[in-house]
Amino acid sequence: MAFMPPTGPQGAQSPPSSPPPQAPPPRPLGASTLAVDPGAISRCMFRMTYVWPRSGPGFWFFPTFVGRTSVAGFRWNGFFWMFTGIDLQRIDAFTCV
């Protein structure tokens, strides 16, 4: 399934105008759950957010849409922001700054 940028009165959402911080934040303490709660990650909407996936390296993310089972927004690839979506079950931990 392809994720499309959410639209609204302002049109398509735009990525941040600057890169994320150079260093990742400290990983939150506590046990992982089976899936990230949509209500918990929704507080990070339109904020720089660091995501630790269940597999693979962590990355900076700028969420612009939170659904029941997924989150979409812009992921920093080291050079520029690119639009992407992530299943909430694939996220181990996150923190917004």
Rank of each mutant, 00 (worst) to 15 (best):
residue 77 N to L: 10
residue 8 G to M: 06
residue 77 N to E: 13
residue 51 V to Y: 01
residue 32 S to V: 07
residue 11 G to D: 13
residue 73 G to A: 11
residue 43 R to G: 01
residue 23 A to E: 15
residue 24 P to T: 09
residue 73 G to H: 09
residue 89 Q to T: 13
residue 96 C to Y: 14
residue 54 R to E: 04
residue 42 S to H: 02
residue 50 Y to L: 04
residue 26 P to R: 12
residue 48 M to S: 05
residue 26 P to V: 07
residue 10 Q to V: 08
residue 60 W to P: 12
residue 19 P to R: 11
residue 24 P to V: 05
residue 79 F to L: 12
residue 61 F to S: 11
residue 44 C to R: 01
residue 94 F to V: 03
residue 86 I to E: 13
residue 70 S to P: 00
residue 86 I to N: 01
residue 76 W to F: 13
residue 83 F to I: 06
residue 77 N to P: 11
residue 45 M to Q: 11
residue 9 P to A: 14
residue 93 A to S: 07
residue 35 A to R: 13
residue 13 Q to W: 00
residue 6 P to I: 13
residue 29 L to W: 02
residue 38 P to V: 05
residue 78 G to W: 09
residue 7 T to I: 14
residue 32 S to A: 12
residue 62 F to H: 15
residue 23 A to S: 14
residue 3 F to S: 13
residue 66 V to K: 00
residue 79 F to S: 15
residue 49 T to V: 02
residue 55 S to T: 15
residue 30 G to C: 01
residue 43 R to Q: 09
residue 10 Q to L: 14
residue 39 G to W: 03
residue 91 I to L: 05
residue 61 F to N: 08
residue 83 F to Q: 02
residue 25 P to T: 07
residue 71 V to S: 02
residue 85 G to Y: 09
residue 77 N to G: 13
residue 8 G to E: 08
residue 65 F to A: 11
residue 57 P to N: 12
residue 76 W to E: 13
residue 73 G to V: 05
residue 45 M to A: 11
residue 87 D to T: 10
residue 74 F to P: 04
residue 10 Q to P: 00
residue 30 G to M: 01
residue 78 G to L: 10
residue 7 T to K: 09
residue 30 G to S: 04
residue 89 Q to F: 03
residue 57 P to A: 14
residue 52 W to T: 04
residue 33 T to A: 05
residue 55 S to R: 14
residue 53 P to R: 06
residue 96 C to K: 01
residue 8 G to F: 13
residue 86 I to T: 10
residue 16 P to W: 09
residue 24 P to G: 08
residue 50 Y to K: 05
residue 61 F to D: 11
residue 89 Q to E: 06
residue 47 R to K: 15
residue 14 S to L: 13
residue 86 I to F: 08
residue 37 D to S: 13
residue 48 M to E: 08
residue 16 P to I: 06
residue 63 P to F: 11
residue 64 T to A: 05
residue 8 G to Q: 05
residue 62 F to S: 07
residue 38 P to T: 05
residue 59 F to G: 12
residue 26 P to T: 14
residue 66 V to E: 02
residue 24 P to E: 09
residue 70 S to Q: 08
residue 93 A to D: 06
residue 93 A to W: 00
residue 49 T to K: 01
residue 36 V to R: 00
residue 65 F to C: 02
residue 54 R to H: 01
residue 5 P to L: 15
residue 92 D to T: 00
residue 49 T to G: 03
residue 10 Q to C: 02
residue 37 D to T: 05
residue 90 R to S: 14
residue 45 M to L: 15
residue 45 M to F: 02
residue 63 P to H: 12
residue 55 S to Y: 09
residue 89 Q to M: 07
residue 82 M to P: 00
residue 13 Q to V: 15
residue 54 R to D: 04
residue 55 S to I: 12
residue 78 G to V: 04
residue 16 P to D: 06
residue 49 T to F: 03
residue 67 G to V: 04
residue 38 P to Y: 06
residue 74 F to K: 04
residue 4 M to L: 15
residue 73 G to C: 09
residue 16 P to L: 07
residue 58 G to E: 07
residue 40 A to T: 07
residue 76 W to C: 12
residue 19 P to G: 15
residue 66 V to S: 01
residue 57 P to G: 15
residue 85 G to T: 09
